[in-house]
Design a protein around this nucleic acid. Sequence first.
DNA 1: ATGTAAGCGAGACGGTACGTCACGTCTTCAC
DNA 2: GTGAAGACGTGACGTACCGTCTCGCTTACAT
Lengths: 201, 201, 201, 201
Amino acid sequence: MLRGEITTAIRQAVVQELAAAGYGRLSIEAVARRAGVGKTAVYRRWSSKLDMVLEMVTDVAGQSLPMPDTGSLRGDLEFVLRIAARALRHPMASQIIPDLLAEAARNPQIAHTLQDALLANQREIGVRLIGRAVERGELPPGTDPEAAVDLIVGPLYWRLAVARAPLPDAYLSRLAASIAAALVAGFAAPTERDVDSRAPA
Amino acid sequence: MLRGEITTAIRQAVVQELAAAGYGRLSIEAVARRAGVGKTAVYRRWSSKLDMVLEMVTDVAGQSLPMPDTGSLRGDLEFVLRIAARALRHPMASQIIPDLLAEAARNPQIAHTLQDALLANQREIGVRLIGRAVERGELPPGTDPEAAVDLIVGPLYWRLAVARAPLPDAYLSRLAASIAAALVAGFAAPTERDVDSRAPA
Amino acid sequence: MLRGEITTAIRQAVVQELAAAGYGRLSIEAVARRAGVGKTAVYRRWSSKLDMVLEMVTDVAGQSLPMPDTGSLRGDLEFVLRIAARALRHPMASQIIPDLLAEAARNPQIAHTLQDALLANQREIGVRLIGRAVERGELPPGTDPEAAVDLIVGPLYWRLAVARAPLPDAYLSRLAASIAAALVAGFAAPTERDVDSRAPA
Amino acid sequence: MLRGEITTAIRQAVVQELAAAGYGRLSIEAVARRAGVGKTAVYRRWSSKLDMVLEMVTDVAGQSLPMPDTGSLRGDLEFVLRIAARALRHPMASQIIPDLLAEAARNPQIAHTLQDALLANQREIGVRLIGRAVERGELPPGTDPEAAVDLIVGPLYWRLAVARAPLPDAYLSRLAASIAAALVAGFAAPTERDVDSRAPA
DNA sequence: ATGTAAGCGAGACGGTACGTCACGTCTTCAC
DNA sequence: GTGAAGACGTGACGTACCGTCTCGCTTACAT
């Protein structure tokens, strides 16, 4: 019997409040105020702010990302990076995600939900991306997809969400190339010798 | 005239509270309580919780990190990664740093302070590290130190502070190798052709 | 088309709620609940709790009281006092009437309705009672009926509705006698002398 | 340690709210708002609105009224009536007193407090007033002081607080005379005969 | 008998107040 | 003057009702 329009208004308000105040300072009262809604309407839907935020995160992150096959490792990488960059450049996301990730360090439920929603998603993409590259012969079998995800997402996340530096268009292509090289080198050459030998080039 | 013992007690309490509650939920009252001190004692030292936290951040991050010359790019990388990993593995740091970085998105003063303290520090290390590698001939001149920092710190930060995945000892060495490869490839090969040519086929 | 049974149930519930909670705390919700009826059923009949209560007061108080001629002032007085005492002893009345009278001090509509219903009624009784006594020669012409009503109803109302003291059976007769004496003296002897002269008796 | 000025401000606000809204609608929130004070300041002083109101009633009603000896029953009566009329004419009192008396019908604590404070006070005045008149020989021994109080206060309360009719200056003198006559007659003549015999015929 | 209209209950809605708690500010008082 | 203690106003908590309003269901009258 809950009216959908009101649920929507509350959801939007939650996102805005999360961005503006962060999870720590998020208050049901402010959400209701921003949504132009009574507190009861909120409590009728979620029993606590944790519930509310968790559902939101699940919803948003549950949307499976497209992962087309571009035909090459580097193409796939660039595609993934571009998608991720678009998401992280959204001002809401770039405020909310780091905030929730930081909160996750204190709140096991948030940690678990994010683990399930965001990270599992990324892991799956990594597995597929690496798997295809291995099939293509671009990467040696046994390449660790988890480490690959660190390499792929890490630099981008750092630049956009942590250092909050600008992201010139050319940067992404260069980054894709670098990561491809890193992945190739990463497991073909676990010893120092290999890396060094390649350097002089 | 302020009693040093009390100042010290408050400082410790601030760090513990920051880790336990985060910046958003940090309250002077809780700090004073944890330090076993009156609220007045805190306010006599800092005019607000922002002041307090900024001073702590400046203090901690102001300590310049050692950056020895190990003789090779990969050696330098591994050293830097090991230092950074040690810092990020500290439970306090891994709670406080992401929290403050998230808060920085909302609070220009925090952003500025962190920029000055943490990121400038890293940037300098990056410049030195890349500079030396270029001198050694391991990297082509013109390698962008800023992008290098993204590549170096990003994956580690992602794994430790975001994904909160374990960090096996071997992982660091492999990561150092991968990053070295990425840096070498990063600007030597801005085109697809180069990446593909490197695939073991 | 309104169902009579429901109207009746609501009316009863209103009276009970008025007695239990008073006008200030009276709520449509509680009335509906007590009547076992939806709130809509109530609002379809009255637009507000004021409307509702005013209608009830009018109904109840509209019933004209009998005022027989007992043949003597004192007999008439005792009769009237006995009727009034019976009404005020009813637990509902003794709760609702003072409450509404108090509320009347704040609410002109209630004041007006009560004025019309209760007080006009009493005034009329007073006029008739005094008129007959004057005709009989028991009271001097020019006796003020309004002041007489004060003298008649005041002590009884005070004892029953304010002091909430018990009302022994003999009390009423004595009171009737006293009031008769007061009325007789009231205007025959507006000076101190008369009163004092009577005292020694 | 509670600040007296604030206590005073709250007290005034309570009285004003009681007059404006009545006990039933009285809310701590409104009191605090009107006093320009936080709710905590109120709760720090009284644990509930009942406590708050009871204390006020006790304070106000605790002030013992003066009861001089004017030398005659009628003089004493007129004096008492004049005092009572002054109190009941005060708009605050004429709103609050009937309200609390009505509420007393529902709330034993209020009833008890009012009984102790207001009514006991009046009873004592009645005892003294009647006692003196008996000593003077104006009234027969055995005159019931309680019934006397009903006769004295009832008409005045009815006129001022219930009927809310104007009170011309001459009315009080006349009323005092009437009551004196009633008291004299009240116990000297508990039978009809006496009353009738007094009628001027 | 079926359709339409109105009465009805249920309950979601935006409010207000509840009594509690935690907080930053400010005052008071002991040392 | 440095502290602790704590009263102050503020504001959020989660709950309980309130008056209003929107729903379907049912009842009953007219087709």
